[in-house]
C-alpha cells in the first residue's frame, strides 16, 4: 500500500477513534445533569438557584468532548 493511501487510512481510523472520546464526554455531561436532577428532587426550592452552575459544569465537561472533535477535524483536514 502506498504511503498516501496508508496515511489516509490512518487518518480516518484516528478520526473515528477520536469520536469515541465524545461518547465519554457525553457520559460526563449526563452525570452532571443527573446529579442536579436528583438533588433538585430532594430540595426543589434550592434548585433554581443552582441551575446556572449546572450549566457551567455541563459546558466545561462538554468542552472536553469538543476537544476530541477538534482532534478528529485536525486529522481529517490538517493532515
Amino acid at each position: 500500500m502506498e504511503l498516501a493511501a496508508a496515511s489516509a487510512l490512518a487518518k480516518f481510523i484516528g478520526a473515528g477513534l477520536a469520536c469515541l472520546g465524545m461518547g465519554l464526554a457525553a457520559i460526563g455531561v449526563g452525570n452532571i445533569f443527573g446529579n442536579f436532577l436528583s438533588g433538585a428532587l430532594r430540595n426543589p426550592s434550592a434548585a433554581d438557584g443552582q441551575f446556572g452552575r449546572a450549566f457551567i459544569g455541563a459546558a466545561l465537561a462538554e468542552g472536553l468532548g469538543i476537544f476530541c472533535f477538534v482532534v478528529a477535524l485536525v486529522l481529517l483536514f490538517v493532515v
Binding site: 462538554e62 469538543i66 477535524l73
Partner: peptide, 13 residues
C-alpha cells in the same frame, strides 16, 4: 486553550 477551543468547537460543530 480550553477557552478558545470550547467556543470554536461548539460553533463549528
Amino acid at each position: 486553550i480550553s477557552l478558545s477551543l470550547r467556543l470554536f468547537g461548539n460553533m463549528l460543530a
